[in-house]
Design a protein around this nucleic acid. Sequence first.
DNA 1: TTGAAAGCGGTACCAC
DNA 2: GTGGTACCGCTTTCAA
Lengths: 340, 340
Amino acid sequence: MKRLTIKDIAQEFSVSISTVSKALNDSYEISVSTKEKIQKYAKEQNYKPNFNALSLKNRQTKTIGIIIPNMLNYFFAQVFNGIEKVANDKGYKIISCISNESFKKEVETMETLSNGSIDGFILSLAEETVLKNDFKHFEEILENGTPIVMFDRVAEPINCDKVITDDFKGASKTVKYLTKSGSKNIAFISTISNLKVGKKRHQGYLKGLEKAGLPINNNLIINIIDEDYKNYENILTPIFEKNEIDAVIATDESSAIAAMKVAQKKGFKIPENFAVVCFSNGILARHSSPKMTTVSQHGERMGATAASILIDRLENKSEEAPKTMIIKTDIVERNSTKRA
Amino acid sequence: MKRLTIKDIAQEFSVSISTVSKALNDSYEISVSTKEKIQKYAKEQNYKPNFNALSLKNRQTKTIGIIIPNMLNYFFAQVFNGIEKVANDKGYKIISCISNESFKKEVETMETLSNGSIDGFILSLAEETVLKNDFKHFEEILENGTPIVMFDRVAEPINCDKVITDDFKGASKTVKYLTKSGSKNIAFISTISNLKVGKKRHQGYLKGLEKAGLPINNNLIINIIDEDYKNYENILTPIFEKNEIDAVIATDESSAIAAMKVAQKKGFKIPENFAVVCFSNGILARHSSPKMTTVSQHGERMGATAASILIDRLENKSEEAPKTMIIKTDIVERNSTKRA
DNA sequence: TTGAAAGCGGTACCAC
DNA sequence: GTGGTACCGCTTTCAA
């Protein structure tokens, strides 16, 4: 029942605990015979050094705290996966919390975790935090000497490592991609206009139009605040009635699917005379009909990158300046767009 | 930089560390004035007791180890969410690992975590573990005094708490539901015939037919081994050609969507003359066209239940016999079936 | 009302 | 080659 300790082993062989400790760590100071018998016994009895004792002694826990806004979001699940893989490879454990887009939960989590539970944080801002623009908690943690790596939704003014997607470029190159196959009236649907990420995509869209020499039509820029995707179709229908639209770029999968349905109801054929592309992580896009062309965000890669950066910083205590890694997006062609 | 300790505070006020400790814990032994000044100072300086020291002392970490086969599976993400909520409410942290369906990873994770990192486990078996039928690692952990709660994919012979869905009943009542609205030739598509869960659903399906007085047609029982859902349509097409089918029950969303597509290509109208129901957690089902009727598994509820059971066991060290909780499924009617 | 000291489970320095 | 001991940060018993 009670776990075996170094002390128990010492007793077993009538040696001191320091001998046991050294034997288990294969120290040159200890005779081969002693080492062998002690190691053998430890193995048999399934001895494991106590984690908390080690962490206390070493002042490091080999664990990373992760704060994710919403685990039901496939993108974040992918990032989580990426982090987990790298962390696991490098012998780190993961303590995870879901902020549920709540500022309060995010702050509290960081509070409770920064008591020696973890060596560093990887996180993406809760939506509330973005809106409040209140980043004091990050500063405090950093001052405390605990490194933070932010991904996707990052706090620009905070001086820490960051991993982001090239949303701007992703959007502008999508416009280019669409124009190549003949689209002229490209609408932009955003459900995240309040997030930086959403703004970047919006700007990229505008830039793309400019480059393509297409006019900007504000009626085709559709910001949906309502989070309830059940309403997307109702919101889009009148807009599609009143305007001439032959393509859509959406910031997320749900609104893109809604757009497809509305277009189809209006009699458009996808991709023949109507194209749809969305920023996405794949899950819904791969199952819609037709399957959607997406601007893929490489969630796993982002996670893996974030973990590498954090662990690097943790292990080479070197005081390198914080860096921002940009993970590029790729257009994954499926059946909601014509091949050029 | 270095974190404030009780010792520092003691120095600050020229008192002993025990005085500080007691003051912070609001002990009656300490004078009100001392307590006040110490508590005030601690708050100002943002003092937090060291987690590892506490865990070492108390022999408990207030953290739960979670092992999830695959985080990209929406169901598991939901369960995770449920666990997280309850754990958070009760002041527990979560260390999570993804077994990635690998036996080895599952075993290793349990090894590394059972060194005092966590107080108990919540897990769902990796597919490999199910196939190998090798549960020694669970037994060892339990013998060690670390409680385990298994959910969804559980190891029956292991004597621990479990939370499962009523898959058998879920399947049989789905058959009933379909027959009510006129279906006669109900196919059963399984992509998880190797898992207990899949077998239960299969049996439930058979039972449902029996109860409804429908014959069993082995051609309509379709076990798909290939995990690549891109092939589902190809696999199903010939079967749909050769057999008379007017309804499908699928064990998962992807194969159900494939079935819908194949049926639609064959000219069926869903739900008018073809019905589809799948076991699901909702994400794809809510976005397919038509939206799918599902047998919902209540992932969050399962997670919450598992967490409650574990924490209960952790806190009332009472040696109650392990129990198995069955979370019932519900049929969520959408547009892939006719209302009765 | 306060403080000394042991102990939680290890590691590591120093003596022998 | 082996053992003693201090220490990591905190709680708790016992003594003052």
